[in-house]
Design a protein around this nucleic acid. Sequence first.
DNA 1: TGGATTGATACGGATTTAGTATCATCAGTC
DNA 2: GACTGATGATACTAAATCCGTATCAATCCA
Lengths: 315, 315
Amino acid sequence: MDLLRLKSFLVLAESLHFGRAAARLGVAQPHLSRRIRELEAEIGVRLFARTQRRVELTAAGATLRLRAIRILDEVEKAKVEARQIGTGSAGRLRIGFIHSSTYGVLPAIIRSFRAMRPAVMLDLVEMTMIEQVRALRAGDIDIGLLRSLPDVPDIAFETVLREPFRLAVPADHAFAGRAAVALPELSGEPLVLFPRETSPLFHARITAAFERAAVTPVIVQEATQIHTVMGLVAAGIGLALVPSSAERLPRAGAVLIALTDPPEPADVSVAWRAASRPLLVTPFLEAAHAAAVGLDAAGTPAKVLTRPAPRKQRS
Amino acid sequence: MDLLRLKSFLVLAESLHFGRAAARLGVAQPHLSRRIRELEAEIGVRLFARTQRRVELTAAGATLRLRAIRILDEVEKAKVEARQIGTGSAGRLRIGFIHSSTYGVLPAIIRSFRAMRPAVMLDLVEMTMIEQVRALRAGDIDIGLLRSLPDVPDIAFETVLREPFRLAVPADHAFAGRAAVALPELSGEPLVLFPRETSPLFHARITAAFERAAVTPVIVQEATQIHTVMGLVAAGIGLALVPSSAERLPRAGAVLIALTDPPEPADVSVAWRAASRPLLVTPFLEAAHAAAVGLDAAGTPAKVLTRPAPRKQRS
DNA sequence: TGGATTGATACGGATTTAGTATCATCAGTC
DNA sequence: GACTGATGATACTAAATCCGTATCAATCCA
């Protein structure tokens, strides 16, 4: 069975005229006769009833016609789809992301990327950084969205956003009305901190800043996820240094304040397997950078210190 | 795009090894390389990532593989289906039938035919004989099941069953206990008869028999359908001559009795367009003959006169 | 009855396809 | 670190297939 034969059959089934069908196919009439005869021989069934004056479909031909339309259509679609996936305008992109990007940069990146490549399906899976590296190596995800990594040879990454740290204080705290606070002022204040094991980057940046400021922090509680930290702050357990994306996390009872001497910003990076950079990494990086600019413009400054924007606070 | 290329692609996608795939396809390895290259050129996308040591599918290749499996499967199914329809082992058969066959031979024929050709779909439409002839000519039905026709040149038919006439009498009639009755005994009895216009065969056979017996029937009522006639008999309106298939029509208050000098039997025939005898006519005739024999064996004798079999009578 | 139309057949030339020999590259090994 | 074996790509020749022209047989229409 040959698609050319099938196509010829279909054209003849439409026009029911060997001469005209052959013309539409761009071949000579005798050759169309041959193709149809070969198709009939292969199937072992007469597809057209030729009365030497009129050509009509047999019952077998009529059902084959319906099938043939479908098959040729699917072949065409398969070709187009493969081409689109090959050129990156369609397909599937499996993305691992850390939890804290959920209310920060991730939605903006997704929005931006979908606008660029509407035909690409995104599979989003929340993972820790460690899990992302493992999944990238195993080929389970194509792209990781994570905080910057220690140098790993087989994983490439590019930073798309630098998030400044802010001071989170309970709404009824003395600092709550202040425009900015300096780290030395936190001396003696109870603090909530990210643990070294599960949040190495946050932990390192924050403790380094306290060292620079010559402050010995009083750690009263540890918590891994930003929303937990914010909850503890709101409950009055202590103050905390959190990345600015915490602003997007509605939480009654806590406010964010700028720092005059903040830690080195925490970056959000896009990672992929260095060996086989997926085609869609480039557009994804574009989308991520665009999203980062948008976030800045929307009042989440990445570098400049400003008065914290007013926040909606929901229960 | 060529199914051979697609098949080659699929085999290579399974084995991921040019040499082995080529062997499975029965071609030399260089030629498989060519086919794949051509397929990739046509689609404009690399389908395999060749690392000179290992071959693996690209993302485009992976989705094309799924599509290709489906397409090749559908092509195969289309071929098989067309072949089956062409040889009559599958397909659709549109049958027109007269009402009176419903409780006579039709169910038996259907049962027999479905056992023979389980893959053939039957479209059953009740029609009068006139409508059947029209539908056969228009190509709306393939087969008609009807009483014998006056010779019509473009419709061919074959008789599959000859139904003897019986005398239907009310259950409380003097004849009710008799084994057989002769037509002259009906002289003066009120009779229900099929009208000439709508039931020409029954009318002709019955009036001819009365003429032979030199009896002038007293017609008190006409009715077209056998179940109506039986109803009128049960109601005591009169007696009637009905084809023996009326036995299969449960009807309280009426019994059937053999006739010693019955009219010529009424035949049930299968008709088709003489110009293009559908393939399935032959098996349908076989099924019909088999069903007719079964009916005889089951106590509906076509020729011999016997005591009428006991009947279930439901309201 | 003759002309026109339609599909089938025959045959020679052109294109495509298949097979053989060979090469380049890389992984694993001693 | 050179060698060996394996793998896919390339080049070239032979065979098969495909395609177009010429022609025929049968039917319809005037």
